[in-house]
Write a protein that binds this DNA or RNA. Structure first.
Lengths: 205, 205, 205, 205
DNA sequence: TGATAACCGAGACGGTACGTCACGTCTTTAA
DNA sequence: TTAAAGACGTGACGTACCGTCTCGGTTATCA
């Protein structure tokens, strides 16, 4: 009783303002879309967010942390479980369309680029990208199970390989070809991977 | 006329040393592999090449030009026409294996990243990447023609779509999964795209 | 009157703790001796005193106020009336020795420096220094009266001029020469000012 | 012959502009007079001199170096040998008047303050002050020799002690009393030290 | 025995300045 | 003309204090 508690209360002190968080993360996303991951300057973010540079450093100690936080919310946009459409094709298109749409937005492109240029493991925005990857994998698992039950899935074929190939195709289109992301294109690619290049002798003429 | 000519001779003055070119481009590649495209500092390149900063700027006015020049030679490594193996599968694996091997090298990874993170069109190393793309497309054309003749190619299927999908898969593996680039994996992916996900009822058991 | 008084009670509420005052002023003195007046950081004082920065600002609104408070006590050390030794020389040495000793301590040096570098009138520790000055002047007055009675004081010579000259000599030694402050040195200087540079023809050979 | 010289030529490269030197040192002096040694901000100096902060740091690596350079020229103002006036009194007044005038100027005050608050030996502007001290000592030596020849100098009395005492008096007046520096006052102090406090029995009645 | 009021610790926040690094341009000497 | 060397303006880096501002919890005194 005589000794004062002196315990570090977590909730002590002036609480962090929401305004700062919002303004900074928004400005960060804008910067990412404009100047890219490289070329993102904390100083400029601070200016645009009308927030002090020191304040940013207080909350997000490294540039990586800042970018990760900014992409956090964005990445959640893709989440949300893919519905069962009754066919493998429908399921795949449904799942991938979200990804495709996401990558087509400036923010999404930023995430993708950040992830792809991430130098070291677990760096920068790779975390946000990894979360996206995780979600996609989960959705894929259910999808494969259903497809196998319907006999639409080649026995032993890993779902990962399929989804990685398709996501790769999307990235190629978005970041290399700079071509528009249409539903038609996506369905064509899905068809390609589902049915293959080599003609099916028994089925189509 | 007693006065000397004073014509603008192109070859007048001290000639550009080869030593400088070599040292600079080598140092640039080293930097690319070490620090990545972002994080490449001309100042450091100059120091490592034991060449003056100003000299670099004289020859390659922008960072993009420097990087492009450094990657120039590298990209040619992938070139060289793909031989006719007699099967579509063999042709495709042969063509893609070069790409896969290339992307697996530090220099190749640098090209890939540079291309993917290229902000504006025709920037940075996108040029080098585009050349790679061009070469691949040419090779692909011949390949498709042969395959069609053998009935191995689905009528009307664009070769581009196939190659883009497969290159996308390679990039995904190299830059996102950080997984090793094995021949086995490549063949599996080629098989996937050739035969498709959905089992062939009539043919294989 | 049914309504309660609602008078502002001055003495209500939790009283200011002595612990804080002591710890802060002590830490301030330590800082002054270590880092000097410039270079004194409230933040560091707070850390060393294990007291919150805000608490310091609440009590001493400006840095000047803090320093002044810290030096308050110290300056009193010099006070205490100088005894009558029977000779002008003895009186002067007695009076100045306190000053000399004081200036030789870290705290005293801090006061002196603070006073000398005081930018504006009545700033920083100038107050503390002024108090010291005041005390010295008072002591001097009595001393001069006694000396005049004994015929030891040149008629019309202001005591101030003498004491200022001697204190100046002390400061010069302490702050510029960084030489040790010995009793012998002090007596020599007093002798100098008492007897002068020019030899006395009639008296000593 | 085959190996290039690669010697570091001192004179190579763009020479340092005079404009920068002048503007910076002038602005530094202004800052010193305004804000004092503490409170001198390189950033502000750069702004006022319309010169870049980095440029300042390139030339004067530390704040101390900058201040020292700025005071360099100023300190020379006091230099110049003191003429032989024929009397000890005249010589002393002549020598000290320069010092007094110097300390009375804003720049001189800055030097004095800087020297007095110099924390460590050989720091900041202590160098400039030391040069001043050196000059004064030299001048003093000649003065004492002459005075001794005329029988005006107490045998065995160190010139240093006299000059330090008188300079101490000047500093006291300039920095503590904030009193004006008049010729009359200076002569009175010199008289005090020359003739002493104790009346001369033989001479005055 | 509560209400009331001040004290105090904790931390957020907008500022200013720090000293360093790299940028790309410019100016000068030597080869 | 090329090359080496370096000056210079510019912009950003990440850190340290400044002084002000909310908070929440404590500790006295007074009704």
């Amino acid at each position: 009783m005589g000794t004062p508690q002196r315990s570090r209360r977590r909730d002590a002190g002036r609480p962090r303002g929401q305004r700062v968080t919002d303004a900074v993360l928004e400005a960060t996303l804008a910067e990412l879309a404009t100047a890219g991951l490289a070329g993102l300057s904390v100083e400029r973010v601070a200016r645009n967010a009308e927030v002090n540079k020191t304040t940013i450093y207080r909350r997000w100690p490294t540039r990586a942390a800042l970018v990760a936080a900014a992409l956090e919310g964005i990445a959640d946009a893709v989440a949300g479980h893919a519905p069962d459409t009754g066919t493998l094709r429908g399921d795949l298109v449904g799942l991938l369309w979200r990804v495709a749409e996401f990558v087509a937005t400036p923010g999404g492109r930023a995430v993708a680029r950040a992830a792809l240029s991430a130098q070291a493991e677990a760096d920068v925005a790779a975390l946000a990208a990894r979360r996206l990857e995780q979600h996609t994998s989960d959705a894929m698992e259910a999808l494969v199970t259903r497809a196998e039950a319907r006999g639409e899935w080649l026995h032993g074929l890993p779902g990962e390989r399929v989804i990685h190939t398709l996501v790769g195709a999307i990235l190629h289109r978005a970041l290399l070809e700079h071509a528009p992301m249409t539903r038609d294109w996506l369905e064509d690619v899905v068809d390609l991977v589902l049915l293959g290049v080599v003609p099916r002798t028994g089925s189509t003429g």
